[in-house]
Design a protein around this nucleic acid. Structure first.
Ligand SMILES: [Mn+2]
Ligand SMILES: [Mn+2]
Ligand SMILES: [Zn+2]
Ligand SMILES: [Zn+2]
Lengths: 143, 143
DNA sequence: CTCAGTTTGAAATTGAGTTTCAAAACTATG
DNA sequence: CATAGTTTTGAAACTCAATTTCAAACTGAG
C-alpha cells in the first residue's frame, strides 16, 4: 500500500479529516528531497501555497510520523528533520558537519550485529539511530 | 594524562582562569554517575555548593566538551547529557524509552564496519552516534 | 597588594516546538 | 442543498532548554 493510502486510512481510523492542506503537505513532502526540517518544508510550501501556516505543517509532519510514513531525524543541529519511511530499505546516515550533506548508507552486517548486542542485554529494540559525523569527500579535500 | 590535567592545561592554553567553581564542577562531574543533564548536575551540585549558578554549570560542561574530557549525548528526551570521555574504551548506548535506563555496549565489529562504510564514500569520520531505543529486560517483562 | 581582564550568577533572551482559540472547513444527516 | 456538530486552520501566545547579558566578584601577573 502506498504512503498516500496509508495516511488516508490512518486519518479515517483516527476520526480525522482529509483536508486540502494535509493533502498538499503530503504531496510536497513525498516529492521533495529528503531530510527537510519543518521550517524548510514550510518555506518550500509557501512558494505555491502561501496560505498554509507553519503550525499546520508541523502538526501534519507529526501525523506522518505517527502513522509510520515518515521518520523523525535529529542530526544535532537543533532542528528535527523528517524523511519518508522506506519499509523496504532501511538506511542510516553520514552527515557532513561542514556543508551539511547527508549520505545514506545500508549495511546489513551492522544491522545484524545490532540485534546481537540487544540480545546480549535482553533488550527489545524498537528503533535505532546510527550516524557518522565528519567530512564528505569534497569537504575533506579543500582545506 | 588524567582528565583534571587535560582541563587545567586547556584553561592555560586558552588564557582562561582556574576558578573554585570550575574545579568543583569538574570533580563532581568526574565522580558522579554518567549521563547527567546540565539540570541534573546542577541539582546535585546545589546540595553541597548552593552558590554555584546554573549558567556556570552549563558553561563549564561546554568547556569539558571543548577540551575533549566530556562527550555530549542526546537521547531524544530534549535534554543534552554529558559523560566523561574514555579514550580507552569507546562505547555506545541502549536507551530504555520506558524507565530511562542506559546500558553501555562495546562492539568492535560494528566499529570496524563503520570505518568500512565511511571508506566506501571517502568520508572522514570525526565522531559517531549509535543508539538502540526500546525496552530493557525489566520493562519488557511488566508491560 | 594592584588592577586589567576574566568569571560569575541572576535575569533576560533566543528559538524550536507546541498549544491556544476564534474563524473556517468538513462531513454526516435531514 | 441546508444545517449542525466536529475537526482543522493559522496567527499569536506559550514553553522550556540553551544561551547571552551585564554588573559585581574574582583571578593572577607584575
Ligand atoms: Mn535518509
Ligand atoms: Mn555512556
Ligand atoms: Zn561536506
Ligand atoms: Zn527500562
Amino acid at each position: 500500500m502506498d504512503r498516500v493510502s496509508v495516511f488516508n486510512q490512518y486519518l479515517r481510523t483516527q476520526g480525522l479529516k482529509s483536508t486540502r492542506q494535509r493533502m498538499i503537505i503530503l504531496e510536497t513532502f513525498l516529492d521533495s528531497k529528503s531530510h527537510y526540517s519543518t521550517e524548510e518544508l514550510y518555506q518550500l510550501l509557501r512558494k505555491d501555497h502561501p496560505r498554509i501556516g507553519y503550525a499546520t505543517v508541523h502538526r501534519t509532519l507529526k501525523l506522518f510520523a505517527e502513522c509510520g510514513i515518515a521518520i523523525e531525524l535529529n542530526f544535532g543541529d537543533g532542528q528535527t528533520r523528517f524523511e519518508p519511511h522506506y519499509t523496504e530499505h532501511h538506511h542510516d546516515h553520514l552527515v557532513c558537519t561542514r556543508c551539511g550533506k547527508i549520505i545514506e548508507f545500508v549495511e546489513p552486517r551492522i544491522e545484524h550485529l545490532q540485534r546481537e548486542v540487544a540480545e546480549r542485554y535482553d533488550f527489545t529494540v524498537d528503533s535505532h539511530r546510527h550516524e557518522l559525523y565528519g567530512r564528505c569527500v569534497r569537504c575533506s579535500q579543500d582545506s
